[in-house]
Design a protein around this nucleic acid. Structure first.
Lengths: 248, 248
DNA sequence: GGCCGATATTGGTCTAGGCCAATGCGCTAC
DNA sequence: GTAGCGCATTGGCCTAGACCAATATCGGCC
């Protein structure tokens, strides 16, 4: 297998930092280029992948450093605040925008309301230890009078829905995929444009199976993991191996 | 906000392909560089992000083309074969390696067995429509005599555990994160080195809470989504509810 | 007609270097 | 003593072009 030069450089940088801890500095790009007898472009490509992988962080004007290990885990539903609180991460959120807007085609389909029907749109920046964690845009259907104040009071979106409006979620479905940070997201979350991100679409259904929430969250891929735990009871996954087991 | 030139180029390429369908060709890098009055390097950076985003695909010697939309969804547990079968994707797998190996530190911790204890290691390439989908390495604890033949017979790993060994999974936990394709993964899965990938660690527990399976799967981030559905509380809800169809 | 090799095309990698922008440090002026 | 300016350092972006490798095409040969 052909292995490009920048991949070797990547390995060499990894061994350079093997015995260093988070926050320790890495030589400058120009120094590395000279040390490995290559061009700065090649070194930058190696560093870019290490940054994408969460091994290094770099800041213009400061330098490049060994990254913190990826250890924040995000679970489904309310667990964002619950998990982080229990692990001492001091979760918070900054309300960027709150409005009632007509549902566009996608929101209408997700919430199963007519296109154009007013829905609540909540745009927030989620934080932990006062650092930006995720950019989140939630759409909520149904009448929610005074949502702004109630949200303010409870902090958590799910707590607000439950305590102020009696909306109880019964099923939540998360779709997880990768995406690439655009300049706006990069600026909000303090990462590089082009970095791999975890894009999570969440649909929350009430007890009647009606969607009441559709949320799109973008997490930094170099810092987060998403954890999904599921019980495999007799009722929950009836199909099992018997019917669909055989593979080609 | 400062927007780099390659980001504009990205937008221009997007509008170029807006009215074209999957498989349609995009002008060559050299043509695009001239058309946008920029260097090939800048065009390549724009294209690289569009490829990472699953909007374009490119092959050396052939060219660059509009990609298929991202529409394969992978669920937990048996659903790999289940979902893909029901959607006509003809799932399959290629056994790359099957061996009994001593547990290394990580496997030992995950399966809660002493380090060095023999465990089964199953390395497979998952496919759909005969195309590579994921690279998967499963570790299984417990005595599983004749695993090779049984696997052969059933195809599915979960069907084998269940039907040949009476191993019933009760809880499955998936940890989803991003990673970056290394040259080996890129070769196996037919994507670029450095592409964002979905890395899924799956732990399967039996009814006693003992881990019996620990699997590490790498999916192409430009082709797949991961779906996790969870019931909240004791309510039961119509099944159809959350699985939305249309993708953007 | 069909096979095969030369060649043009296209993306893949790498170089060498210029200019810009953010940062941090030290020096200077008050 | 301190506030603020200026400069060196460092990463961020871009250029122009060279060479390599995979692919497709087309022509000639059997």
């Amino acid at each position: 297998m052909k292995v490009p030069k920048y991949f070797h450089v990547k390995g060499q940088i990894l061994s350079l930092i093997a015995d260093r801890g988070p926050g320790d500095p890495v030589p400058t790009e120009r120094e590395l280029a000279e040390a490995f007898a290559t061009s700065r472009t090649t070194v930058r490509k190696a560093i870019a992948e290490l940054v994408a992988d969460g091994r290094l962080v770099h800041t213009q004007g400061r330098g490049t450093f060994v990254a913190q290990p990826k250890l924040m885990q995000v679970r489904q539903l309310t667990s964002f605040s619950q998990d982080l609180t229990s692990e001492g991460w001091r979760p918070g959120s900054v309300l960027l925008d709150l409005a009632e807007v007509p549902a566009d085609a996608e929101v209408a389909a997700r919430l199963r309301v007519p296109e154009g029907q007013p829905v609540h749109r909540v745009e927030r920046l989620r934080t932990a230890l006062d650092q930006p964690i995720a950019h989140e845009i939630a759409h909520l259907s149904g009448p929610l009078p005074g949502l702004g104040e109630e949200l303010e009071r409870h902090g958590s979106l799910y707590a607000t829905l439950r305590n102020s409006y009696g909306v109880e979620l019964a099923v939540v479905e998360d779709v997880v995929e990768t995406s690439v940070a655009d300049p706006q997201q990069a600026a909000l979350l303090g990462c590089d444009t082009g970095q791999p991100m975890l894009l999570i679409h969440r649909t929350g259904l009430d007890v009647d199976g009606k969607p009441v929430e559709w949320t799109r969250s973008v997490f930094r891929g170099d810092r987060f993991r998403f954890v999904a735990q599921q019980r495999v009871g007799a009722h929950s996954v009836p199909e099992q191996a018997a019917s669909g087991g055989a593979l080609a």
